[in-house]
Design a protein around this nucleic acid. Sequence first.
DNA 1: CAATCCGGAATCGTATACAATTTTTAGGCA
DNA 2: TGCCTAAAAATTGTATACGATTCCGGATTG
Lengths: 267, 267
Amino acid sequence: MSSAVKAGTRRGAAVPSGAKPAAGPPAKPDVKGADARSAEGGFSLPPGRALAICLQLQTAILEHRLRPGMKLSEDEVGEIFGASRTVVRAALHALAHSGLVSMERNRGAFVSRPTIREAHEVFEARAVIEPRVARLAAGCTTESQLENLKAHIEAEHVALAAGEMSRSLYLSGQFHIAVSEIADQQVLGTIIRSLISRSSLIIALYWKRPDTACESHSHHALMRAMESQDGQGAEEIMKSHIVDLHSGLDLVEHSHHDQALSEVFKK
Amino acid sequence: MSSAVKAGTRRGAAVPSGAKPAAGPPAKPDVKGADARSAEGGFSLPPGRALAICLQLQTAILEHRLRPGMKLSEDEVGEIFGASRTVVRAALHALAHSGLVSMERNRGAFVSRPTIREAHEVFEARAVIEPRVARLAAGCTTESQLENLKAHIEAEHVALAAGEMSRSLYLSGQFHIAVSEIADQQVLGTIIRSLISRSSLIIALYWKRPDTACESHSHHALMRAMESQDGQGAEEIMKSHIVDLHSGLDLVEHSHHDQALSEVFKK
DNA sequence: CAATCCGGAATCGTATACAATTTTTAGGCA
DNA sequence: TGCCTAAAAATTGTATACGATTCCGGATTG
């Protein structure tokens, strides 16, 4: 049933939609150090083909082309990517470990639907970890890294101006990842990537207002703090930025879809 | 070659070696809330049988029965646990995601050998995260949870007195996990579990002195801070405790095994 | 008419078989 | 003796097949 998964062209580039050139010249940014090692959670790359499937699925989820709750049938995904269930299974397990999909025994894999509680916890965790990492990063930012950050912000602006909401959010996450990579802490970096991935799901579910160009300002301020080696400042900006993100969510039971119907007309 | 893996009885309890009764009566503690949900990294449990294998391998690694660098052949593990390679593979992948084993393409799975850099990063990460979690935990510790912590410390003492070094370290890690569970933060708790698991590997590789009953004191102090709801104190104690652990490591290239030989007689 | 029960279809869990790659070993040659 | 080459052995990567469980629809019955 259903034509659920419709990600990219069977064998497009690993991050096809990630290279979308909104405007010609100013869009050279494109996540620099986030190639293969930015894989799922960051850990042990699944062998061979599974990794490609992983990345495509991940990108699709992070760009909200696959919404939370969608079923990822092994057969279906396998047919789409022209792979056997064995490797699809590996890919799905990998994504499950990174928290993007959840697997229910004998029922299959679904794009994760973070609970409200988990949403809170993810952003609390980010509020604990990322500010500290931002401080570390501020202490050792090179010129080219600053350029990279600038390009990221640039790209965010472009996407936002073009009204590409989901892509904008994706890039926003990539910015945070870029910051964590500057800190050159792989362990914390991996953790942060995982949290940001999950944040993407949370935002897809609980975002309050579809407008709000809130991001770019904080990101710019953060970059400037890093530019002037202001660790303390960077830490504080990051902290408040994440708190802002957290409070920008509408964390109440959403009573989604038909459940709402049966609930509304109950009596 | 080799009779590498020799964990438990093919189908013993999930955590057989974890229940080793050093002394009869005083050993009732045994990790309370750390049953199945304390699985590997904490994430998506591999389906069915794989989970059991996961847990057994994990326990063996955490107790240093499987040393870093050991090869975990799929066939071999499969034969030992009476399972087919399919499920063994899933188990190994899961452990790889939690950082306990590393897989090299076309070469197989090995118990991870954390690099010195990774060792530093893991303890830096713990120093960032755990103190904050300890603070949270201190604010909401119930009586029974205190009892549980007490039992943990008790068990550590017993193991230490019996000279069971590796088990003592294992229990030390479990104590930290117990603290994180009190904080009732699943996301951060999962992260902490993963970091502690890796710490176990790091300690196996880089521990300085095989003696040192250093742990228990800090743990006891932490417990008392939590008992008196002293969040600030708990945070500080945890912080310094982790720094102590970090500095208790001998983080220099160990030139292990034969490499040492060729090095010694080089000139 | 509604609730329940059963059978088919679909999907997942596991085992086994085959292909690809690596490692090792045996052999030949300088 | 030492080193390079090549074939064999071992191990992993992938595909397919079969059994088990769940889901969905229709028939039966109170």
